[in-house]
Write a protein that binds this DNA or RNA. Structure first.
Lengths: 246, 246
DNA sequence: GGGTCTGAAAGCGTATACAATGATCGGCAT
DNA sequence: ATGCCGATCATTGTATACGCTTTCAGACCC
């Protein structure tokens, strides 16, 4: 990919290369936010990666001010960590956080299932099926990034069907963080959702069987969590005495 | 113009009135955030109130940059609304949002109860009891603001006992928004939680009866929601034709 | 030879300046 | 007199400049 000048800036609308002119403000920022967010969720930016403001400002052709705003938003969603004088880096979730996130998903996504089964429409089913299909294809062809993204999108889309925007937002955020968790604790090759799981779930929903869907989602999420290798790495201040006492 | 310098703070550490010097950064900002957040939650700033950046910058003795950061954080928590070229104002929740928020609380707060009942300690119980007592006192002496705040704190604290920081955060945010909802749809004099409800809940938790606590919390939240007068004010594009057709 | 201290460099935090946009108010024409 | 149009004003959006903190490299001392 062309590294520099990720998007060919506002050249088209306003005058030439003058970078100062604000192009089309809010849309541009939203696009940058999406770019960074996607890169993190798709594991193109790995946990721990530093995100220097200057570098990002240069890459996207805006000033640090806009980048800072975006970084802070990402920090509030816990995708990046802002250390006081050290700048931003992609969040490296702890084992505790991983547990919290999956417990939360278990509660909310399962709890939403009955309502989703009640409200789901034909269009919804078609869209979900499409996502599941594309996800399987991506998995087969080895495009991990795409598969991860589609999996998160599937769960997010599902939650949105409930009609509760607040909870859907929450689920979306949890899915993003889950992606981060998978990046740290996931085993290569066995990433997250089994491909047929989503299809099975769609089947239950199509049948209007909210209870089975709920139970299945529970197993689904527990399976993902169980597939993680939670090695509690205490890289912070390793206890050397303990280690070398033998 | 004597800026009334809401919090005197910074003066002590670094030199006198020189506003430019960055004092002690993060703490100051957090304090300002809390101040504004509290003012909104306690209904001292009512929904719809405009929050001009210049004014806030002057009041708190920092520049607009810091204020903007705080405003954006509040916007992400949906306590303030940021309209593109119009600035910030305290969010006026819609009826739909109100329903979503209470449905979410119903799901999460109730779902948390069993775990809370399992984990609650004597200190927790004491703290909760203290909060409930102070809330009742505030209610009796007519300090609505204090009562509202204590009620939200009670629910937030309760959620934190679960040990799940993610869900606790979510509940905290829901409680903040609930306060906003009460400001718009609540009936004066009958604000939110009945005073004895919280005490009853503490009783169930002390007995370790998670199921009863869960059921009670459900009734509690439903009662609050039912007490709202959801007059679906469609101030946005009122259907004049409909109105004046008679 | 290794540890520690110091100077330079780099990067973040904050403030200020400038530009653009939407709102408000006064003037003019009908 | 009223409605429309234009100009000024107020307020946000963005960029840039500056100061402070941290960090890293090299040299000195132990």
């Amino acid at each position: 990919m062309n590294q520099r000048q990720f998007v060919a800036e506002g050249k088209s609308s306003d005058g030439g290369g003058r970078p100062g002119k604000n192009g089309d403000g809010p849309k541009r920022h939203e696009a940058i936010y999406q770019s960074i967010s996607d890169a993190i969720i798709e594991h193109r930016l790995k946990p721990g990666a530093r995100l220097r403001e200057d570098a990002l400002a240069e890459v996207f052709g805006v000033s640090r001010t806009g980048i800072r705003k975006i970084l802070q938003r990402l920090a509030l969603e816990q995708l990046v960590t802002l250390t006081p004088r050290r700048g931003a880096s992609v969040t490296r979730p702890t084992a505790d956080e991983a547990k919290d996130v999956f417990d939360a998903r278990l509660m909310v996504e399962c709890g939403l299932m009955p309502e989703i089964a009640r409200r789901i429409t034909a269009e919804d089913l078609a869209a979900l099926r499409d996502m599941a299909t594309r996800e399987r294809q991506a998995l087969r062809s080895g495009e991990q990034s795409t598969a991860i993204r589609l999996s998160a999108d599937f769960h997010t889309r599902l939650a949105s069907i409930s009609g509760n925007a607040t909870l859907a937002d929450f689920v979306e955020r949890l899915c993003s963080r889950s992606s981060l968790i998978l990046a740290v604790y996931g085993n290569a090759g066995h990433l997250g959702c089994e491909s047929h799981d989503h299809d099975d779930l769609i089947g239950y929903l199509e049948a209007g069987n909210g209870e089975r869907a709920e139970a299945f989602m529970g197993r689904h999420l527990k399976a993902i969590e169980a597939s993680l290798s939670i090695h509690v790495e205490e890289d912070e201040a390793p206890d050397l005495f303990e280690i070398f006492s033998g």
